[in-house]
Design a protein around this nucleic acid. Sequence first.
DNA 1: CTGAAAGCGCTTACAG
DNA 2: CTGAAAGCGCTTACAG
Lengths: 369, 369
Amino acid sequence: MIDIPQRHQGKRPRVTIVDVANGAGVHVSTASRALNPGTSHRISSKVVRKIEKVAEQLGYKRNTLASSLRTQKTGTIGLIVPNLSDPLFSPIIASVEERVAEDGYVTFVANSDYSPVKLRSIIERMSSQFVAGLVVASFELNDPSVELCLELGIPTVAVLRDPRHPRMSSISMDDVSGVQALVEHILDLGHRDISYVTPPLAASTAQNRLAGFNAATRLAKAAGCRFDVVEARAYDVAEGERIMAHMLASGLTSTAVLAFNDLLAVGCLVALKSAGISCPEQISLTGVNDLPFMNMLSPPLTTLHTAGRDLGLEGADLLMSLIKNLSQPIKRVLLTPHLVLRGSTGPVRKRGSDADPSPVAVQSGAITG
Amino acid sequence: MIDIPQRHQGKRPRVTIVDVANGAGVHVSTASRALNPGTSHRISSKVVRKIEKVAEQLGYKRNTLASSLRTQKTGTIGLIVPNLSDPLFSPIIASVEERVAEDGYVTFVANSDYSPVKLRSIIERMSSQFVAGLVVASFELNDPSVELCLELGIPTVAVLRDPRHPRMSSISMDDVSGVQALVEHILDLGHRDISYVTPPLAASTAQNRLAGFNAATRLAKAAGCRFDVVEARAYDVAEGERIMAHMLASGLTSTAVLAFNDLLAVGCLVALKSAGISCPEQISLTGVNDLPFMNMLSPPLTTLHTAGRDLGLEGADLLMSLIKNLSQPIKRVLLTPHLVLRGSTGPVRKRGSDADPSPVAVQSGAITG
DNA sequence: CTGAAAGCGCTTACAG
DNA sequence: CTGAAAGCGCTTACAG
């Protein structure tokens, strides 16, 4: 019996530039020049047309592998994010892809999983694949991978997280003033006991948001207000739930809780609900990022809007210009996050009105996580 | 003045296999064999160790471009989704990446933007970059790109959307029975006038969900129930908002609305809210996919859970085995979506109770979009 | 077990 | 304006 593969039997042979050259009756070097935008002007337009026609008819596609090997440059850029599943990165991925495609580049996306070790190995792998440049959303502060990119000579732009390296350009959100505005809004609402949930201070985002919190609370602290910082271990909903349950169990006195990001805030909200505590009546809550659907929660979440699409577009744009000219001044761009006021924040309860003994009491049985 | 580039001056020279061979005092072919897992057993282990040590010291990284050009195979696979920003695709992207990484492949992600034309050009581009295989979530029914993949001889697996081609394997959700279960739940709640919002029937998902709706309503229709199908033009929140506003303006009589997906459902919810119609008291609402945060909406959305991670893992797994052996039987795998009952669906109002004239009345001023 | 040589498909100085 | 030739960095039949 003849063994016919059940699929793909029609594998068609690949057309090379040699086929095109033969078909057009010219030398391969002529065909190559004609088919390259940068050199086609050196060939008589009649011959160019002929070659283009033959290439079209034969369905010729340049072998980018061979081309890249020869020219030592590829049409690919790498994009590294710390968590592919976090909705925060969707618009960043989409917009980087879009912007670099304008210049004919394609994008490799990789997930560093919040690990500096994985980040390093991804960078090394991408370098060995000759990416033309890198957009990195995974850098931590003083991340040794920054030096690696510089040593390897790969044009690189940091987005979202700024490694704060004197030779690395970055596009990030102005977290300090953003969180400051958030705290001021909370103070305006009359809150005098506020907690902030921070992740480990590995990245600029974590450090800057804490700095914003501290800056805003410094004066108020002198005036007798109470501020507390609680450390989370991760960035996700589950951790937010755990932290809030823990805070409640330890006798939380705050009337407002600011979370590092929306995911933690949503987790806090879950824990508040299962403890039977109403938001914002008993506790006001805020996040950061303004992820999709945050306007549809119950209550809708007050947050800072992170312009993911702008981060991606500006980052990719800067990378494109860096690829054209590496020797340009380092830039550190801050985009202003805007405050999105929604239902999860409200005026602090007047003392003595409405009863209900503070601090917030909660049955230990109601605590999850 | 001497012009010193401000960045990247330390660009280090690339180490090739020739350097390694020289350093180890062997021929490049020996170095190549020693450094390749498949051939290293042919070299004396002493020499292998020597070569590995030198490679390590020199920081040698194989140039994958050159390697791929020679072997005619790359370590990359392509993943094509119709919309990079839809949260539905995040777990698919993450899980495909994860699974193929186990076999040493890296992933190219591309966005077809719901356009068969863009899809074709992405496939052609990826083919010209010698991807080892493709995972495609963008196929429409009878999509000519399926033939293209087969002709090009690229191992390909369809996920989420099944092009229903006799020679294309696919992993998708069992939408027919899923939506059927959804309708039965709604009927159980007492609803007798139900509308379904469908997008254009280009993809299997659209066609199957409509088929599920029709199958479930056939009997009930004979029993005098009223069912309506409304056509949307897109898949997003804005379109859901527009459609629901339109339905309300045209005197919607249904007490339950099923939307093709969560995004449309959320849009419907927005329109209901701005029209002052309560969900589920006046109108029950369902989506499909169970995107993140759907459990946190107000009301939480009843929906079908799409196991994005499983689609990605199974799809990538099948692709890996296809790459190893193209001549294997075509598979069409259906995963069962499970029904997630939440607050957006509830019993139909008893007639005559509670007053409120049906059909749902609404001021035209309240209609958005 | 190791070496010498050819070749993957391009591009680009070097000639003319 | 076009051609002939070298070479990017690998891998792999072919010898020995």
